[in-house]
Deep mutational scan, measured.
Amino acid sequence: MTTFKLIINGKTLKGEITIEAVDAAEKEKIFKQYANDNGIDGEWTYDDATKTFTVTE
């Protein structure tokens, strides 16, 4: 398992979430669903070196 981080830079929601997953593709799906469930629609980036997804509205 690898630890992945999501950084949220939303208009109404900001924060960080850290979760373990098998791979980045699995985690991306979970993070995007979390963002969608919380009304966050923005630009996504991924840094493989730090295993960090960022979504910015």
Score class of each variant (00 low, 15 high):
residue 6 L to C: 15
residue 43 E to V: 12
residue 56 T to R: 04
residue 41 D to H: 12
residue 33 Q to I: 07
residue 19 I to T: 02
residue 47 D to C: 05
residue 41 D to V: 13
residue 23 D to G: 06
residue 21 A to I: 14
residue 42 G to V: 10
residue 46 Y to W: 06
residue 28 E to Q: 05
residue 51 K to R: 11
residue 1 M to A: 07
residue 45 T to P: 00
residue 5 K to S: 05
residue 24 A to D: 15
residue 35 A to W: 08
residue 37 D to K: 07
residue 10 G to R: 02
residue 1 M to N: 11
residue 57 E to Y: 14
residue 57 E to I: 15
residue 5 K to V: 12
residue 33 Q to S: 08
residue 18 T to M: 08
residue 50 T to Q: 02
residue 29 K to R: 10
residue 29 K to W: 10
residue 56 T to P: 02
residue 3 T to C: 14
residue 50 T to R: 03
residue 7 I to L: 03
residue 23 D to T: 11
residue 25 A to D: 10
residue 12 T to K: 08
residue 21 A to M: 13
residue 1 M to H: 07
residue 33 Q to R: 07
residue 17 I to S: 01
residue 29 K to S: 10
residue 13 L to S: 06
residue 1 M to W: 10
residue 47 D to R: 00
residue 26 E to R: 03
residue 27 K to I: 15
residue 46 Y to S: 01
residue 32 K to D: 05
residue 54 T to F: 12
residue 22 V to H: 10
residue 11 K to C: 15
residue 16 E to C: 15
residue 34 Y to R: 00
residue 27 K to G: 15
residue 55 V to L: 11
residue 41 D to P: 05
residue 32 K to W: 11
residue 15 G to D: 09
residue 37 D to H: 05
residue 51 K to E: 03
residue 38 N to E: 03
residue 32 K to E: 08
residue 47 D to I: 02
residue 23 D to W: 11
residue 26 E to S: 10
residue 42 G to L: 10
residue 35 A to N: 02
residue 38 N to K: 09
residue 28 E to T: 04
residue 14 K to L: 13
residue 55 V to P: 01
residue 3 T to V: 10
residue 5 K to R: 07
residue 6 L to D: 03
residue 12 T to F: 12
residue 48 D to M: 04
residue 26 E to A: 07
residue 10 G to Y: 12
residue 47 D to G: 01
residue 43 E to G: 04
residue 3 T to N: 05
residue 24 A to H: 12
residue 19 I to C: 15
residue 45 T to M: 06
residue 49 A to E: 07
residue 9 N to F: 12
residue 45 T to S: 13
residue 53 F to A: 05
residue 1 M to Q: 08
residue 55 V to Y: 10
residue 42 G to H: 03
residue 18 T to L: 12
residue 40 I to T: 03
residue 18 T to C: 15
residue 38 N to G: 04
residue 36 N to L: 14
residue 33 Q to F: 06
residue 23 D to K: 06
residue 48 D to K: 04
residue 14 K to D: 08
residue 48 D to L: 05
residue 39 G to N: 10
residue 3 T to M: 10
residue 15 G to P: 03
residue 48 D to W: 06
residue 42 G to Y: 11
residue 46 Y to M: 01
